[in-house]
């Protein structure tokens, strides 16, 4: 797999096969035109990211979050659930009891 960093200055595009693979992983249907645009734009953006390589991060602990706390819990106490009608209210398709999706056992 070609990595964007190794692409030349004149052609920083992310290979179309990578764009298609990522689109599939993200469950995004893209048109041919979109694939081409993202190939160029993502290539350019990823090339810009290579600036980070110049920073020596040896031994630096990744900062997952700025939140200064830990051990946050809730107690095991029941809170009333949503009425089913409300839980399903925004669903594109239901049978009044469950969400409906195309048959998974195709």
């Amino acid at each position: 797999m070609t990595e964007p960093q190794q692409a030349t200055k004149t052609s920083p595009a992310l290979p179309l096969s990578d764009v298609a693979r990522i689109a599939r992983l993200a469950r995004l249907k893209l048109t041919e035109n979109e694939l081409a645009i993202y190939s160029n734009q993502l290539g350019k953006i990823l090339e810009f990211m290579t600036v980070l390589r110049e920073v020596d991060t040896t031994g630096v602990e990744p900062m997952i979050s700025a939140v200064p706390c830990e051990n946050v819990f809730r107690e095991d106490l029941i809170v009333e659930s949503l009425p089913r009608k409300l839980a399903l209210a925004n669903a594109p398709k239901t049978d009044g009891k469950s969400f409906l999706v195309p048959n998974i056992l195709g």
Partner: peptide
């Protein structure tokens, strides 16, 4: 839980959360 139509004839599965 996805509840599948075991008969295979149905066109939809139900989702119970």
């Amino acid at each position: 839980k996805n509840i599948h139509d075991e008969s295979g004839r149905g066109s939809e599965s139900q989702v119970d959360l």
